[in-house]
Design a protein around this nucleic acid. Structure first.
Lengths: 118, 118
DNA sequence: CAGCATCCTGTTGGATACTG
DNA sequence: CAGTATCCAACAGGATGCTG
């Protein structure tokens, strides 16, 4: 059936869920210029809680999008970086953000028109 | 501050929220070949409830991404179609799905490796 | 520093039933 | 046909406190 393409557990849907997660996009975008430490990520991504940061990073690591490197030093130091797969996802995230910045005006206008139209 | 780019209510974030919504992506993709009726959309998008379909369609309409055309006939007929803005979003959705199909294998492999690595 | 565990609340969204 | 309305379970995710 053609409709299966849109089924909940179809391949693209699983990827969509990850891309759809705002924190994931934000993390991947933050890592565009190279690796960052846990705290550096936390600082760059405004409003993320430690819980969500860790959770999202684990998901990205599991999906092969970021690497997690623990340095055996005191105090601990953990670096996160994009994998090759992650960098390919980055292009997509950039496309997302480019579209967003380019069309946010249109969207906002449309909303205003819709809302004032009752 | 540079970190404001990632703030919760920054412009790109609002658009991200819409794109991040799986139902939105699915609806926009479904409308790629032209307008569809409410029920046709429901059939194509496997597993969507009337509630979510209506809710998402309203959101897309408000954002200027789809048009909603009510025909004064009995039984009622309502057509949904992409606007120009919607079609531009469609390209992005296509890019999303292309990426998903291209890399789902890598992601699945990475997950398996991660899970069995415990 | 880089988390993990726990609690707790708000939101999401499915199921179900009804309507112009 | 194309929704709307209501209820409710599940999950997301913030706050807080603790640890190797």
């Amino acid at each position: 059936m053609e409709t299966d393409v849109y089924a909940k557990n179809c391949p693209s849907r699983q990827v969509l869920d990850r891309i759809g997660d705002a924190w994931s996009v934000l993390i991947v975008s933050s890592l565009k210029d190279g690796s960052l430490r846990y705290t550096e990520l936390a600082q760059r991504i405004n409003g993320v809680s430690p819980k969500m940061l860790t959770q999202t990073l684990r998901g990205l690591e599991r999906d092969g999008i970021v690497t997690r490197t623990v340095h055996a030093v005191v105090p601990p130091r953990v670096d996160y970086a994009l994998t090759t797969l992650g960098r390919s996802l980055l292009s997509l995230c950039n496309a997302l953000q480019d579209w967003a910045e380019m069309h946010i005006g249109d969207v906002l206008d449309a909303r205003e028109a819709y809302d004032s139209r009752v």
